[in-house]
Design a protein around this nucleic acid. Structure first.
Lengths: 253, 253
DNA sequence: ACCGTGCTCCATAGATCTATAGAATAGCCT
DNA sequence: AGGCTATTCTATAGATCTATGGAGCACGGT
C-alpha cells in the first residue's frame, strides 16, 4: 500500500524549488551578496557582472522560491535574503563544498588564500586580543556591507582602498582582517597586501555571517571615522541576539 | 576590486555543482534515502519509482558532485552518502524549506502529520521516559534502515507491518515512534494508526539523522526482537559531533 | 567458457532553462 | 501631464537537462 506517495512527491518538489536556486553559479553569488547586505538590482547586476535584465530574471527565480524579499524605495527595488535560514543554508552549501570537493580547496590555494593565511585567528582569540588593545580589526568588504552590519569596533577599509589608505593603520598593531566568510577572498588578499608591506596581519577564521550566527553582537551603521560617503544612517544593533560573551569589542576608536 | 574574478567564478561553479544535485526532486529523495542507509541501485530505483537506468543516471550525477560513494559487492553496487556533511546539507535544505515555504507545512498538514501529531516528544523527554520504562520506542522505517542504525533500545516495526503485528506491543505502554525526520511521514502515519486502535502514541520530534547529528548514541545491527536491549551483535558507536552552528541539543532554530 | 544478473554507457527526442533585446510598468520630478 | 529612471515582463533562439531503450561490462555460478 502506497501511502500518499503523490503527496510525498509534492514535498520533494517543494524542496527542489529551493534547490533550483542554487543550480546556477550566478544565483549562488547573488545569494552570497544578499546575505551580507541588501542591494538594488542595479548594484547586484554590477557586482556580479550580469546584464540588468538577466540579473532581474535570476532574482525573480529566487523570489519565487521565497529565498529573497524586496523593499521598494522610490524608483528602486532593494533585495535582501529572506531570513537567517537562507544564510544558514548557503553556509551549509559552502561547508559541504569545502568538505567534499577537493577542487574548492585547490582553487583557494591557487589564489593564495591558504598560502597567505598561515593560521587564521579564532573568534575567541580575537575577542581576547582586542580587549587587550593588541590588534586592529579591519572590515575589508565594500562599505555598504560594513554599514549593513559589522563586528563592533571594527573599522571599514575596503580592499580596493587599502593600498591608498595604508597610512591610516598604526604600523605597530597587528591587523585582523575579515570579510564574507571562508570562501571569500577579500580578507586573504588584504592580508597578503599588508604583509607585502611589512605589516603583521592575519585573517579571522570566518566572515561576518558566521560571527552573526554564533550569536555575537553586530553593529550597524557607519562606525568610527575613517569612513567616507554620506553618514546618515548611524543607528546600531537592531536585533540583539543572545550574546554570551562580552558585548562590546574594543573601547577605543 | 576585480581581482581573481575568473577564479571566483570557478568557485561558484563548484558550489553549483552541488546545487545541481538538489534541483531534481527525485535526486533529493534519493539523497534522503541514502542518508538513512546504503542501498543497491535496484533498491533505490524501486523505492523512488524510477526506471533502473534513470535511477542510475541520477546517481551518476550525484557521484560526480561527490555527494555519494559506491561499494561493490559481487554483482551489485551499493550507494551511500559521502559523509555526514551531506546529511547536514539535506537537513539544512529541509529546515529552510519548512521555514520559508508555507506550502510544505500545508502539505504536511494535509497529510495529517500535524493533526495526528499533537505534540512531538523531545529527545530529552524520550531519554528520561525510556529510562523510567514508561515508553516503547518504535522505529517504523524499513528494516534495512533500522539495521543500518537506530536509537539504542528501539524496536523495529516497519509501518507496513504495524497493523499485522500490533499484538507485539504492550497496550499499557505509550509508544514513541520515529522515522527519517520532520518531513518523513512514516512515524506520523504509524501514530495515527495506533491511536485509531486506542493506543497512546506520539512521534519523536525528529528522525534518526537529527538524533545522530546531536551526538547521541546509535546502535547498529538487528536489535532484539522481543526483549529490549540484550543485543547480540549490537555495537553502539558514539561519535561526538559538534552541533553545526546551533549551540545546544534542544530545539532547532 | 558460457550465461544470467545488475549496472553503466550511449544516443536521442522532448522538455526546460538561460541570456537578451525590446516593450510595459511604477514611482519621481518639473 | 509628460519626461525620467529603475525594474519587470515578453518573446525567442540557443544551450542544457531528463527519460528511456538498447548495447556494453563486470562478476559469479554452472
Amino acid at each position: 500500500m502506497e501511502h500518499g506517495s503523490g503527496r510525498r512527491a509534492d514535498l520533494y518538489e517543494q524542496l527542489a524549488r529551493i534547490g533550483k536556486v542554487v543550480v546556477h553559479p550566478k544565483r549562488i553569488e547573488l545569494l552570497d551578496l544578499l546575505c551580507q547586505a541588501e542591494r538594488s538590482v542595479e548594484a547586484l547586476a554590477e557586482a556580479t557582472g550580469l546584464k540588468l535584465t538577466t540579473a532581474s530574471a535570476h532574482l525573480q527565480v529566487m523570489r519565487q522560491a521565497r529565498l529573497v524579499e524586496t523593499r521598494r524605495e522610490g524608483t528602486r527595488v532593494f533585495y535582501r535574503a529572506a531570513g537567517e535560514e537562507v544564510c544558514l543554508f548557503v553556509g551549509a552549501l559552502n561547508d559541504l563544498a569545502r568538505a567534499r570537493l577537493a577542487e574548492v580547496d585547490q582553487i583557494l590555494r591557487a589564489l593564495g588564500t591558504d598560502a597567505a593565511g598561515t593560521e587564521r585567528v579564532s573568534r575567541d582569540e580575537l575577542l581576547a586580543r582586542v580587549q587587550a588593545g593588541e590588534v586592529v580589526v579591519l572590515d575589508v568588504r565594500p562599505e555598504e556591507e560594513y554599514s549593513a552590519g559589522h563586528i563592533p569596533g571594527a573599522r571599514s577599509l575596503p580592499l580596493e582602498h587599502l593600498e591608498a589608505r595604508l597610512d591610516e593603520l598604526d604600523p605597530d598593531l597587528e591587523v585582523v582582517a575579515y570579510c564574507r566568510g571562508p570562501l571569500c577572498l577579500l580578507a586573504p588578499e588584504a592580508v597578503a597586501l599588508l604583509r607585502g608591506r611589512g605589516r603583521r596581519a592575519r585573517c579571522l577564521e570566518d566572515g561576518l555571517p558566521e560571527w552573526r550566527q554564533a550569536g555575537l553582537p553586530v553593529e550597524e551603521g557607519i562606525g568610527a571615522r575613517s569612513g567616507s560617503s554620506d553618514g546618515t544612517n548611524a543607528r546600531s544593533s537592531r536585533r540583539e541576539r543572545r550574546a554570551p560573551r562580552s558585548p562590546a569589542v574594543g573601547g577605543r576608536s
